[in-house]
Simulated scan of single mutants.
Amino acid sequence: MYSVLNSLIKKGFVVSVDSGPSRYYPHPPAEVFSQLSVHYRKILGDLARKLQKIYREQQEDVFVWNLHGRRAIINKAKRMLSEAQQSVILALWHKEWRPLVNSLKHLHEKGLKVVILAYGALKTDFGEIYLHHASDPSYREGGIRKFILIVDRQELLFATFPKALGLWSRDVDAVKFFRDFVIHEIYLMKIKNCLSSEIERLFGKNWEKIRLTI
Protein backbone atom coordinates (compact mmCIF):
# COMPACT_ATOMS: atom_id res chain seq x y z
CA MET A 1 0.00 0.00 0.00
CA TYR A 2 2.83 2.40 0.89
CA SER A 3 4.42 1.92 -2.52
CA VAL A 4 1.15 3.00 -4.13
CA LEU A 5 0.90 6.04 -1.85
CA ASN A 6 4.51 7.02 -2.58
CA SER A 7 3.78 6.78 -6.29
CA LEU A 8 0.74 9.05 -5.92
CA ILE A 9 2.84 11.55 -3.92
CA LYS A 10 5.52 11.64 -6.65
CA LYS A 11 2.86 12.27 -9.27
CA GLY A 12 1.40 15.12 -7.23
CA PHE A 13 -1.95 13.46 -6.67
CA VAL A 14 -1.59 13.13 -2.89
CA VAL A 15 0.19 15.11 -0.16
CA SER A 16 1.65 13.50 2.97
CA VAL A 17 1.37 15.23 6.35
CA ASP A 18 3.67 13.93 9.08
CA SER A 19 1.61 14.16 12.27
CA GLY A 20 2.56 11.16 14.33
CA PRO A 21 1.11 8.56 12.08
CA SER A 22 1.41 9.98 8.57
CA ARG A 23 -1.76 11.21 6.99
CA TYR A 24 -2.44 11.47 3.29
CA TYR A 25 -4.67 14.04 1.65
CA PRO A 26 -5.65 14.23 -2.02
CA HIS A 27 -4.90 17.36 -4.01
CA PRO A 28 -7.98 19.18 -5.35
CA PRO A 29 -9.18 17.35 -8.49
CA ALA A 30 -9.08 20.56 -10.55
CA GLU A 31 -5.36 20.99 -9.80
CA VAL A 32 -4.63 17.34 -10.54
CA PHE A 33 -6.38 17.44 -13.91
CA SER A 34 -4.72 20.75 -14.75
CA GLN A 35 -1.28 19.21 -14.11
CA LEU A 36 -2.18 16.13 -16.14
CA SER A 37 -3.44 18.29 -18.99
CA VAL A 38 -0.18 20.28 -19.16
CA HIS A 39 1.90 17.10 -18.91
CA TYR A 40 0.10 15.21 -21.66
CA ARG A 41 -0.16 18.25 -23.94
CA LYS A 42 3.62 18.49 -23.82
CA ILE A 43 4.01 14.77 -24.57
CA LEU A 44 1.52 14.93 -27.46
CA GLY A 45 3.12 18.11 -28.80
CA ASP A 46 6.57 16.49 -28.85
CA LEU A 47 5.13 13.38 -30.48
CA ALA A 48 3.31 15.43 -33.15
CA ARG A 49 6.51 17.31 -34.05
CA LYS A 50 8.51 14.09 -34.35
CA LEU A 51 5.83 12.39 -36.46
CA GLN A 52 5.56 15.46 -38.70
CA LYS A 53 9.32 15.37 -39.26
CA ILE A 54 9.15 11.68 -40.22
CA TYR A 55 6.14 12.39 -42.45
CA ARG A 56 7.95 15.18 -44.32
CA GLU A 57 11.04 13.02 -44.84
CA GLN A 58 8.90 10.23 -46.26
CA GLN A 59 7.05 12.63 -48.54
CA GLU A 60 10.27 13.42 -50.36
CA ASP A 61 10.34 9.85 -51.63
CA VAL A 62 6.70 9.81 -52.78
CA PHE A 63 6.23 10.46 -56.49
CA VAL A 64 2.45 10.88 -56.67
CA TRP A 65 -0.49 10.73 -54.30
CA ASN A 66 -3.96 10.38 -55.78
CA LEU A 67 -6.83 12.45 -54.42
CA HIS A 68 -10.53 11.72 -54.83
CA GLY A 69 -13.39 14.10 -54.18
CA ARG A 70 -13.77 17.86 -54.22
CA ARG A 71 -13.36 18.27 -50.46
CA ALA A 72 -10.09 16.33 -50.38
CA ILE A 73 -8.66 18.38 -53.25
CA ILE A 74 -9.70 21.77 -51.86
CA ASN A 75 -8.46 20.87 -48.37
CA LYS A 76 -5.12 19.80 -49.83
CA ALA A 77 -4.88 23.10 -51.70
CA LYS A 78 -5.61 25.04 -48.50
CA ARG A 79 -2.95 23.09 -46.62
CA MET A 80 -0.39 23.81 -49.34
CA LEU A 81 -1.24 27.52 -49.30
CA SER A 82 -0.98 27.65 -45.50
CA GLU A 83 2.63 26.44 -45.76
CA ALA A 84 3.70 28.59 -48.72
CA GLN A 85 6.84 30.65 -48.11
CA GLN A 86 7.72 32.36 -51.40
CA SER A 87 5.37 31.98 -54.35
CA VAL A 88 2.11 30.55 -55.64
CA ILE A 89 1.18 29.79 -59.24
CA LEU A 90 -2.45 28.86 -59.78
CA ALA A 91 -4.60 28.03 -62.80
CA LEU A 92 -8.30 27.54 -62.09
CA TRP A 93 -11.94 28.32 -62.80
CA HIS A 94 -14.24 30.50 -60.71
CA LYS A 95 -15.86 27.57 -58.84
CA GLU A 96 -12.50 26.56 -57.40
CA TRP A 97 -11.47 30.18 -56.80
CA ARG A 98 -14.17 30.92 -54.22
CA PRO A 99 -13.01 28.53 -51.45
CA LEU A 100 -9.36 29.62 -51.85
CA VAL A 101 -9.62 33.39 -52.30
CA ASN A 102 -9.13 34.28 -48.61
CA SER A 103 -6.01 32.12 -48.31
CA LEU A 104 -4.57 33.62 -51.49
CA LYS A 105 -5.29 37.18 -50.40
CA HIS A 106 -3.61 36.52 -47.06
CA LEU A 107 -0.46 35.29 -48.83
CA HIS A 108 -0.44 38.35 -51.08
CA GLU A 109 -0.71 40.63 -48.04
CA LYS A 110 2.24 38.79 -46.47
CA GLY A 111 4.33 39.69 -49.51
CA LEU A 112 4.34 36.36 -51.36
CA LYS A 113 4.22 36.34 -55.16
CA VAL A 114 0.76 35.19 -56.29
CA VAL A 115 0.27 34.47 -60.01
CA ILE A 116 -3.19 33.44 -61.20
CA LEU A 117 -4.27 32.12 -64.59
CA ALA A 118 -8.05 32.42 -64.53
CA TYR A 119 -10.24 30.51 -66.96
CA GLY A 120 -13.33 32.57 -67.68
CA ALA A 121 -14.43 35.66 -65.76
CA LEU A 122 -12.76 36.27 -62.42
CA LYS A 123 -12.46 39.55 -60.53
CA THR A 124 -9.79 40.20 -57.91
CA ASP A 125 -7.85 43.16 -56.58
CA PHE A 126 -4.63 41.36 -55.69
CA GLY A 127 -1.89 39.27 -57.27
CA GLU A 128 -0.84 38.99 -60.91
CA ILE A 129 -3.92 37.81 -62.77
CA TYR A 130 -4.11 36.65 -66.39
CA LEU A 131 -7.49 35.95 -67.95
CA HIS A 132 -7.78 32.93 -70.22
CA HIS A 133 -10.79 33.08 -72.54
CA ALA A 134 -13.53 30.69 -71.45
CA SER A 135 -13.31 28.64 -74.65
CA ASP A 136 -10.56 26.45 -73.20
CA PRO A 137 -10.64 23.26 -75.34
CA SER A 138 -10.92 20.87 -72.38
CA TYR A 139 -13.94 22.76 -71.09
CA ARG A 140 -15.52 23.41 -74.48
CA GLU A 141 -15.20 19.82 -75.68
CA GLY A 142 -15.67 17.87 -72.45
CA GLY A 143 -16.86 20.24 -69.72
CA ILE A 144 -13.58 19.65 -67.84
CA ARG A 145 -12.24 22.37 -65.54
CA LYS A 146 -8.48 22.21 -65.00
CA PHE A 147 -6.93 23.07 -61.64
CA ILE A 148 -3.17 23.51 -61.17
CA LEU A 149 -1.49 24.75 -57.99
CA ILE A 150 2.29 25.08 -57.59
CA VAL A 151 3.75 26.28 -54.30
CA ASP A 152 7.33 27.52 -53.89
CA ARG A 153 8.34 25.70 -57.11
CA GLN A 154 8.45 22.52 -55.00
CA GLU A 155 4.94 21.16 -54.61
CA LEU A 156 2.23 20.42 -57.17
CA LEU A 157 -1.50 19.78 -57.03
CA PHE A 158 -3.28 18.99 -60.29
CA ALA A 159 -6.98 18.17 -60.53
CA THR A 160 -9.89 18.07 -62.92
CA PHE A 161 -13.48 18.93 -62.14
CA PRO A 162 -16.36 18.06 -62.01
CA LYS A 163 -15.12 14.47 -61.58
CA ALA A 164 -12.86 15.80 -58.80
CA LEU A 165 -9.84 13.60 -59.45
CA GLY A 166 -6.44 14.93 -58.47
CA LEU A 167 -2.81 14.17 -57.85
CA TRP A 168 -0.21 15.68 -55.55
CA SER A 169 3.55 15.48 -56.00
CA ARG A 170 6.91 16.94 -55.01
CA ASP A 171 8.64 15.32 -57.97
CA VAL A 172 10.93 17.95 -59.52
CA ASP A 173 10.12 17.03 -63.13
CA ALA A 174 6.36 16.93 -62.52
CA VAL A 175 6.42 20.33 -60.81
CA LYS A 176 8.49 21.82 -63.65
CA PHE A 177 6.20 20.34 -66.33
CA PHE A 178 3.01 21.84 -64.89
CA ARG A 179 4.71 25.13 -64.02
CA ASP A 180 5.92 25.46 -67.62
CA PHE A 181 2.42 24.62 -68.86
CA VAL A 182 0.85 27.48 -66.87
CA ILE A 183 3.58 29.91 -67.93
CA HIS A 184 3.10 28.97 -71.60
CA GLU A 185 -0.65 29.52 -71.24
CA ILE A 186 0.09 32.99 -69.87
CA TYR A 187 2.43 33.68 -72.80
CA LEU A 188 -0.32 32.70 -75.23
CA MET A 189 -2.85 34.98 -73.53
CA LYS A 190 -0.42 37.90 -73.68
CA ILE A 191 0.17 37.28 -77.38
CA LYS A 192 -3.55 36.92 -78.06
CA ASN A 193 -4.34 40.18 -76.28
CA CYS A 194 -1.79 42.03 -78.41
CA LEU A 195 -2.67 40.39 -81.74
CA SER A 196 -6.26 39.22 -81.22
CA SER A 197 -7.68 40.17 -84.64
CA GLU A 198 -4.73 38.75 -86.56
CA ILE A 199 -4.75 35.50 -84.57
CA GLU A 200 -8.49 35.07 -85.10
CA ARG A 201 -8.07 35.62 -88.85
CA LEU A 202 -5.24 33.10 -89.12
CA PHE A 203 -6.29 30.43 -86.63
CA GLY A 204 -10.01 30.95 -85.94
CA LYS A 205 -11.90 32.42 -82.99
CA ASN A 206 -11.10 29.47 -80.75
CA TRP A 207 -7.86 28.50 -82.53
CA GLU A 208 -9.75 25.63 -84.11
CA LYS A 209 -7.75 25.85 -87.35
CA ILE A 210 -4.67 24.76 -85.40
CA ARG A 211 -6.43 22.08 -83.37
CA LEU A 212 -8.02 20.47 -86.41
CA THR A 213 -4.62 20.00 -88.06
CA ILE A 214 -2.87 18.32 -85.10
Results as ranks from 00 to 15, higher is better:
Y130E: 03
Q85D: 14
G166R: 06
E208R: 08
E200R: 11
L104K: 03
K146A: 14
G127W: 03
G166K: 09
H106I: 05
L188Y: 11
L202Q: 15
D173F: 11
N102H: 11
Y139E: 12
D171T: 01
K123G: 04
K205T: 12
I183W: 06
N102A: 09
V114H: 04
W207I: 08
T160K: 08
V88R: 07
R201H: 03
R145Q: 13
I191D: 08
A84S: 11
K176H: 01
Q154Y: 01
K110F: 05
F126M: 02
G166Y: 06
W93G: 05
G120K: 01
H184K: 15
F178T: 03
A121N: 14
F177W: 06
H94A: 07
W97Y: 15
E141L: 13
Y119I: 14
N206R: 13
Q86V: 12
R140P: 00
A174V: 01
S82R: 09
I116P: 05
A91S: 14
K123P: 01
R140F: 02
R211S: 11
R98W: 07
V114I: 12
E96I: 05
S135K: 06
N193K: 12
R179P: 00
V172P: 08
E200L: 02
I186P: 02
I144Y: 12
V151R: 00
G204Q: 10
K95C: 03
K163E: 15
K113I: 12
D136A: 10
A159Q: 07
F158A: 12
I183L: 13
Y139C: 02
F181Y: 07
A134H: 08
H133E: 12
L149D: 05
K110A: 06
H108S: 15
F126T: 05
L117E: 10
W93E: 14
H133Q: 09
H132D: 10
R170I: 01
A84L: 05
F203M: 13
L165E: 15
S82A: 11
L165A: 13
V172T: 01
E141Y: 09
T160C: 00
T160A: 04
K176C: 00
D152P: 07
N193R: 10
G120N: 03
D180A: 08
S138W: 06
E208P: 03
E185F: 02
L90P: 07
P162H: 08
E208V: 08
